[in-house]
């Protein structure tokens, strides 16, 4: 099944939002991704699944070149995005379609596993990146902060607490704030690294609903730990194993958790704890 990626790769079609070819990433000579070629189709949420340590997060981070922030990183191969705003050469990032790093990071928003709010007020969490990375004029800031908070359904909850430290929000609220921060920068694409892993069931469902709604507006690529969640959200799935792409599932509807689990485990025995 691993060969399927190679055949798809040859079709250079605008149906794909992300094309990675022969992508290998290593940290201090320890290979984390090995020769991954993956085309992610446009529309809906694409979910990367796999055991921990299979390289999902590293793959996701190579889309906005965040791996480079970690020392000892070496990247080979190529990554290309076809965003609404045009083609973007992410890596090696030397061609005519390359964009500056800061612009790439702004256009490809990211949300992390644990909510990474900045240690400032709720309002400034959104307004500081807006003014620093987009140069947004001061007069527009308030409206944009409000828009972003409304989009993640957080405005009602924090409208009267905008000047409170963001660290005092609940976990679910913090994660939605992070989503709002990413959305405020008007990204062309969203990357989500297990965005619900540190949330309770209710908050997780809330975020999931938001993501489904958002995926109508812009491409979303997500790493997920939970198989049930993956099946609920995904319109495309890529299964990773030990730094390699194991298989792609372009139509996950009708699959059941058991099927997915067998895929993850190969021929090995089935373990239940993954399916929470």
């Amino acid at each position: 099944m691993a060969g399927k990626g190679v055949t798809l790769m040859e079709k250079q079609d605008s149906r794909f939002v992300l094309c990675a070819r022969g992508l290998s990433v290593s940290f201090f000579d320890h290979a984390v991704l090995r020769d991954v070629s993956l085309n992610v189709p446009a529309g809906g949420i694409a979910v990367l699944v796999g055991r921990s340590g299979s390289g999902k997060t590293t793959f996701l981070r190579s889309v906005n070149r965040l791996n480079e922030e970690v020392s000892g990183c070496r990247t080979e191969g190529s990554v290309e995005l076809r965003l609404p705003g045009g083609k973007v050469d992410v890596w090696p990032g030397v061609g005519p379609d390359a964009v500056p790093l800061a612009e790439l990071r702004r256009r490809v928003g990211m949300v992390f596993q644990t909510p990474q709010v900045f240690p400032v007020t709720v309002c400034r969490n959104i307004s500081v990146p807006l003014s620093v990375t987009m140069g947004c004029p001061r007069s527009e800031l308030d409206d944009r902060v409000k828009d972003a908070l409304v989009r993640v359904d957080l405005w009602r909850e924090v409208a009267d607490r905008l000047d409170m430290s963001a660290e005092r929000l609940s976990g679910g609220q913090q994660q939605r704030l992070c989503l709002a921060r990413a959305l405020a920068l008007e990204p062309d694409m969203l990357l989500l690294d297990e965005p619900t892993a540190s949330l309770d069931v209710r908050s997780a469902r809330h975020v999931e609903d938001l993501l489904l709604a958002l995926s109508e507006q812009l491409p979303v690529i997500m790493v997920s730990h939970g198989l049930a969640q993956s099946l609920r959200l995904a319109s495309f799935m890529a299964v990773m194993e030990e730094g390699r792409l194991r298989c792609e599932i372009s139509n996950p509807d009708g699959m059941e958790e058991g099927d997915l689990e067998r895929l993850l485990d190969g021929a090995e025995d089935v373990r239940g704890e993954e399916a929470n």
Binding site: L66, A102, L104, R105, F112, V132, T133, A182, L185
Partner: peptide, 9 residues
């Protein structure tokens, strides 16, 4: 990392 992901240099 979160700051870098938001496009901060």
């Amino acid at each position: 990392l979160a700051a870098a992901a938001s496009g901060f240099s």
